[in-house]
């Protein structure tokens, strides 16, 4: 076991995979000399050279488009989108090209690329640098989507993503880069696409991912103190979505809460809630409850920002209401 940060685990995954596979290249804005806006690619340009770590112009559509062409001709590009908020700039390349190439071309070829990006609140970064836009990706068939919550997943999920035969959007959380945990870099990781049950409790299941996993885990002992034992499930990947891990816990507890930092309406929380309701209706004692980001842009004011997304206190408060 090694104690390391989420940031260093991501960096280590890139290093190890670049050593294991000569075809892995990194490309993006500030990934080389600057070392990545959040430091994930620090010094990689020194280790692997300018041909494998490419500083690009500020051309998000071009970066993703070039990664697609590189992936179709034998490389395994890891493109970096500095903020997920910039994804609109890439949406044709990502949604119309990368996502559909395997299908449109009758299965002739896939696009084995990773788009690393980061999202979420927590740094007072304002409305265009703080969003949680995983719903855009989950809404697009053909794109795989991973969102690591733990340091172990930062390492193992990223390495797995770099070996996927299809495009993977890999969304890190900007509030987790300094998270420090023990990680076993050499262990066999859980299979790609499997959710992780981080806490077992017989009264309520909380389904979540990314930073909200930690918020749910923070709320859980406080709930336990009031007699409510919660199961906490970290989805790890949103596509594929591991519903079969969720199902037995919903059936057992009859109460499900979905927690996302992305906004409430027509989003990931809505989809998860609909699935649980459809699949487990007869087992539910309560409607499935969505605890999600408010349907508003994120403010730069730290106070408003923090109040815009779920917090451990909010999760605890709403969970308790589900039992009143």
């Amino acid at each position: 076991m090694t104690m390391m940060t989420y940031r260093d685990a991501l960096r280590q995954a890139l290093i190890d995979q670049m050593k294991a596979d000569d075809n892995v290249i990194i490309m993006g804005e500030e990934v080389g000399r600057y070392g990545g806006a959040y430091g994930v690619t620090k010094d990689l340009i020194t280790m692997f050279g300018e041909t494998r770590v490419l500083d690009t112009p500020i051309s998000e559509a071009g970066i993703v488009g070039a990664a697609i062409g590189a992936a179709m001709t034998g490389l395994r590009p890891v493109a970096e989108l500095m903020y997920v908020d910039f994804i609109g700039m890439t949406m044709d390349q990502l949604g119309n090209q990368a996502a559909k190439i395997r299908y449109m071309f009758g299965g002739q070829i896939g696009v084995p690329m990773v788009l690393r990006t980061q999202g979420g609140t927590g740094r007072s970064a304002g409305a265009q640098h703080s969003q949680s836009l995983e719903g855009y990706i989950m809404h697009t068939p053909g794109l795989r989507l991973a969102m690591p919550a733990t340091v172990s997943d930062a390492y193992h999920l990223l390495r797995q993503a770099m070996a996927q035969p299809d495009p993977v959007v890999f969304i890190e959380h900007k509030g987790l880069y300094t998270l420090k945990q023990d990680v076993d870099l050499t262990r066999e990781p859980p299979a790609w696409g499997e959710a992780n049950v981080l806490r077992h409790g017989a009264d309520l299941v909380i389904v979540t991912y990314s930073r909200q996993v930690h918020f749910a885990l923070e709320a859980a002992p406080k709930l336990a103190a009031t007699g409510i034992e919660a199961t906490v499930i970290d989805l790890r990947t949103l596509n594929p979505l591991d519903f079969e891990t969720i199902r037995p816990f919903v059936e057992q507890t009859g109460r499900a809460m979905v927690v996302t930092e992305s906004v409430l309406t027509a989003g990931v929380a809505a989809e998860l809630t609909a699935r649980i309701s459809e699949e487990c209706f007869d087992f539910l004692h309560e409607p499935v409850i969505r605890v999600a980001g408010e349907d508003i842009p994120i403010s730069v004011s730290p106070k408003l920002e923090a109040a815009s997304v779920p917090t451990p206190a909010l999760i605890e408060k709403i969970a308790r209401k589900m039992f009143q």
Partner: peptide, 24 residues
């Protein structure tokens, strides 16, 4: 590497194919 129904949509892929050609 593909025809395209988005005007200009297939252009950046050749940049990537060019990178592959250099790398390989």
């Amino acid at each position: 590497l593909g025809a395209n129904a988005i005007v200009g949509g297939g252009i950046p892929a050749v940049v990537g194919a060019g990178l592959s050609a250099l790398h390989k």
